[in-house]
């Protein structure tokens, strides 16, 4: 899942980028309104984390510009402005959630997850494909009831496929969703992640769930 983090505090931004990367998100960062505008123009994000007090264009101005331009990416406001009036103003301008500093990274992650789920019109944070169960909120994966241990990268790839079971994703489509702009993955990084993921999903002799569509990409679906 790809996020845009707009935050002018260098320390907070760097820390959040690391933490979110650890949680399996691809994060692009912007330190002011102009950078945020530039990022949003060329990329589509699964969610945007937006600070309000920014140098130059304020967070609310950004939000207004995006919403007027038809960009409906879910936005969570992250700010030191804690008054009810500030919250209401943010939400009225089209923000989807509001988190006041200081906050727990865990809560930010949970809210992001809920936000993206709502955005997709999904009520449950769990996705099931055959006997595979993926809990996006808890970031847990089970096959036949037995928990599997995945790396953040593997989880991101699986999550990308699982959001739309049965749909074929090209290598580039997956890449764009799991790597931030600043990362330059090796050309076979996705293939490598798919390979290790397949092995972990079938630790015994279970039928494979990730299938290759030659020349098109990968798809997650029940074994035929």
């Amino acid at each position: 899942m790809r996020l845009l983090l707009v935050e002018d505090s260098e320390r907070l931004r760097a820390t959040l980028v690391r933490a979110l990367a650890r949680l399996g998100y691809a994060v692009d960062e912007a330190r002011d309104g102009d950078e945020a505008m530039a990022h949003a123009k060329v990329n589509t994000y699964d969610a945007i984390i937006l600070d309000l007090m920014l140098p130059g264009k304020s967070g609310l101005e950004l939000l207004e510009t995006w919403r007027r331009g038809g960009d409906l990416s879910p936005v969570i406001i992250l700010t030191a402005l804690a008054s009810v009036a500030d919250r209401v103003r943010g939400l009225a301008l089209g923000a989807d959630d509001y988190l006041v500093k200081p906050f727990a990274i865990e809560e930010l992650a949970a809210r992001l997850e809920a936000l993206m789920r709502r955005h997709r019109g999904q009520a449950d944070s769990r996705i099931r494909v055959a006997d595979l169960e993926i809990d996006l909120a808890a970031r847990l994966v089970r096959r036949g009831g037995a928990p599997l241990s995945l790396t953040a990268r593997e989880f991101s790839v699986l999550e990308c496929l699982a959001r739309h079971p049965g749909r074929v994703f090209s290598r580039e489509q997956i890449e764009i969703r799991i790597y931030g702009e600043s990362e330059s993955p090796l050309s076979n990084a996705v293939d490598a992640a798919i390979y290790s993921l397949r092995r972990k999903l079938s630790p015994g002799d279970e039928p494979p769930l990730i299938h290759t569509r030659r020349g098109l990409g990968y798809v997650l679906q029940e074994p035929s």
């Binding site: 505090s9 820390t15 650890r22 500093k101 200081p102 990274i105």
Partner: peptide, 27 residues
């Protein structure tokens, strides 16, 4: 409200840094 406001950003930084270090010590 000024005092609370001024304290929020440094506290958020400190909290995020501490959480990162506690949850992923290798960071």
């Amino acid at each position: 409200s000024d005092a609370a406001h001024e304290l929020r950003t440094p506290l958020a930084e400190l909290r995020a840094m501490t959480e990162l270090a506690v949850r992923w010590p290798e960071e």
